[in-house]
């Protein structure tokens, strides 16, 4: 507690002015591709909000600028590291990701549709689950830790080649029951503070909670490079942090609860462009 308080006080001294509204701005990546960062809410959330807005609009001027240029985006360093790993053979089969998939750019279009129902496995899978399935069953390599560095870097590489494509996860058919479980969790008030995802990101986006400007909590920008911890942060690590902050016993990264929640949260952002790796404070 002491340490956290110190961080609060230190940062209070360099406080930026508090602007409560999402900033009116356009995200043009590398002065080339214009990304959709606000759009009409998809039908399944239209009863609670008209418009879905990327977390990018809720961050400060410098943070937004950093994300707009790959040379300034610190997350891109990790994308480059993952590119090396992509091309490196590992495991008993002597294969790399590239052996099966070709160039990493071939992954364009994958990030927008994950989490996704996997017919053969009979389950909804996140990108992380799919990556580990390839590592174990095709490469004969060790699984990566769910939110570990190798994993989050690889998800950044795979997201980066889909930037500018709209998130479009399927929520019907075999994915529907998982989506509904995720929706339940989104509206469940957890912990001693009894706050749900919806309490902050649906009912209060645009408002300040202490020094934080609440966004709609979308995941189209994941993984996010956070200036706070100077590394890439995975979706489930963020979920864990938000649940912990309700003074709750959290779920584990990779747990069925968080997989379901990820599908649901992703679906709320259907239509927003993939931005990962984004930059956040």
């Amino acid at each position: 507690m002491k340490k956290l308080t110190g961080v609060m006080l230190a940062s209070a001294l360099v406080a930026t002015p508090l602007i409560a509204e999402p900033v009116d701005d356009t995200l043009i990546l590398n002065e080339d591709v214009t990304l959709v960062t606000r759009t009409a809410a998809p039908a399944h959330v239209a009863d609670v909000m008209d418009e879905v807005i990327s977390g990018w609009h809720f961050r400060g001027t410098e943070t937004r600028a950093m994300q707009a240029d790959d040379f300034d985006n610190p997350g891109m360093i990790f994308v480059e590291q993952a590119e090396d790993v992509w091309n490196t053979a590992e495991g008993s089969e002597g294969k790399s990701c590239a052996s099966c998939h070709g160039a990493s750019e071939e992954m364009a279009g994958v990030r927008p549709v994950y989490p996704k129902y996997n017919e053969a496995a009979g389950e909804v899978r996140t990108l992380e689950m799919q990556i580990n399935d390839c590592r174990e069953n095709r490469m004969g390599a060790e699984k990566w830790k769910y939110t570990g560095g190798d994993m989050v870097n690889m998800t950044a590489l795979i997201a980066s080649v889909s930037r500018g494509m709209p998130v479009n996860v399927a929520i019907d058919g075999p994915a529907q029951s998982t989506w509904e479980a995720g929706k339940d969790l989104y509206y469940t008030r957890t912990g001693q503070l009894e706050l749900a995802c919806a309490s902050c990101h649906e009912q209060n986006y645009g408002n300040m909670i202490r020094a934080d400007h609440l966004s709609q909590g979308h995941i189209n920008g994941f993984p996010t490079y956070r200036l706070k911890n100077t590394k890439l942060n995975a979706v489930h690590a963020r979920f864990k942090g938000c649940v912990r902050d309700t003074r709750a016993e959290t779920f584990k990264p990779g747990s069925p609860e968080f997989v379901a929640l990820e599908l649901y949260v992703a679906s709320r952002g259907n239509g927003l462009h993939v931005e990962g790796p984004s930059v956040r404070n």
Binding site: M1, L4, V7, S11, D212, K228, D245, R247
Partner: peptide, 14 residues
């Protein structure tokens, strides 16, 4: 750097 997210709702310490 912006304030630490973890500290936003730190309530009773003991």
């Amino acid at each position: 750097m912006r304030p630490n997210f973890l500290a936003i709702l730190v309530l009773a310490a003991s």
